[in-house]
Design a protein around this nucleic acid. Sequence first.
RNA 1: GGUCCCAUCGUCUAGUGGUUUAGGACACCGGCCUCUCACGCCGGAAACGCGAGUUCGAAUCUCGCUGGGACCA
Length: 463
Amino acid sequence: MVRTRFAPSPTGYLHIGGARTALFNYLFTRHEKGRMILRIEDTDIERSKEEYTNDIIEGLRWLGIDWDEGPFFQRERIEEYRKFAYTLLEKGYAYRCYCAPQVLEEKRERAIKEGRKPSYDRTCRDKNLNYTDRPFVIRFKTPLTGNVSFDDLIRGRITFQCEELDDLVILRSDGTPTYNFTVVIDDALMGITHVIRGDDHINNTPRQILIYEALGYKVPYFAHVAMILGKDRTKLSKRHGAVSILEYRREGFLPEALVNYIARLGWSYGDQEIFSKEELIEKFELRDVGKSPSIFDMEKLLWMNSHYIKTLPIEVIGERVRTFLLELGIDVENNGYLYKVINTLRPRAKTLKEMAQMAYFYYREDYQFENSAKERFFTKKGKDVLLAFLEKFEKIEEINEGTLRTVFESVSRELEIKLVDAVQIVRLAISGRLATPGIFEVIEILGKESTKRRIRRAIGEIT
RNA sequence: GGUCCCAUCGUCUAGUGGUUUAGGACACCGGCCUCUCACGCCGGAAACGCGAGUUCGAAUCUCGCUGGGACCA
């Protein structure tokens, strides 16, 4: 049975890159009908924060990426790692190293100056030292010769020469285990069969394989996914805008859009662009994941988001846009009126936040009139147009496109202005803006009384 | 600096030796629709990093170079 894990360090928010790694793990696992584990790698006490852990978990939940076991916290497992470090020591796969940090630092600097590789010179490797009164680290005994290779599920065979690897520290002098060690212990103990992670870990892989072998555990399959880069082609970081995935939620993105977008970043299925989650699970294969890094493109994400705004069931959009209306101080029911409003806004809004802003005038009559538009249309002539419109509008029995069109046409004919100008003046009066959904549908939705009040208010604005 | 990875339109990518005048999508440009803004529809511009080799034939295989990235220091 396939077992995977997503193992973030809570030293930062869940960003696009992490979310994609999680998604690929999730899609692969569900496709294979396996089990996915969430493990929080919080051994770096200095930099790990609970705030980040919460952000990661909430981000995953929001995206609909669920897991089967965990979250497990490495901080609670320190004793376990320590035990295994000593096991390696006893079996002769590791040794105590008493080299003082300052001495190591001096040697390193000298090596760099002389143009040699600054790796540990293995002073303590074969001395079998065991002083109890002096601080020491435990180092892994890397083979001096030979090579380590593995068949990456995305990249094919990757080989490293052992000479290039030095004897890495697995347990620090304060008794805390190091990253490359804890990962192996956990992946082995948790029965992980497929490690899907960012390709920034490729260089760690040979060291980890050596530890698996020393411990006698089966080496899992590895799949290294290329990084997601910012516009400047460097690793995505705080400089590139929205940090946490939850920031996208705040900005009015839909999780469906984000999941779809992220999935297509580095993975493809012919020419298809739009995938539901079920479809992704059905079609996702590691062999279709690309090898080259990709650049995050906000424009395409926005397009994807507007696609889902247009196509998701209206009740779903209604429920979600309510949050954003509430932020504008508008508390609404998820009912028929909202649905009418949404239907006019769907083709226009790229985000839910934008949709809420556009919807403001449908719910409130205290909207501001756009300044430049006011200057252009709220003139003496404009006032006449509004007065004429109001007079005719009050007389019509039923509000529909036909009757409204007649009103606009006669107003423009009588005052000798273009139809478009009559429409724009009324549009500005009833919404405060010059770009809105079609004027007829807007008036139909607002209703006769509200429309009249709005027109009168606008007339009052004109001096 | 060392190691490792990567390389098709600006961006995401299809393409696995001939079906390719290299396809789709975003963005961009033009047109249509039209009460504004959008949506939609139609059309356009836009790429195989360079150089050798293998082959009858290479975007596709091999090597080198160049460029980019990551990790370690």
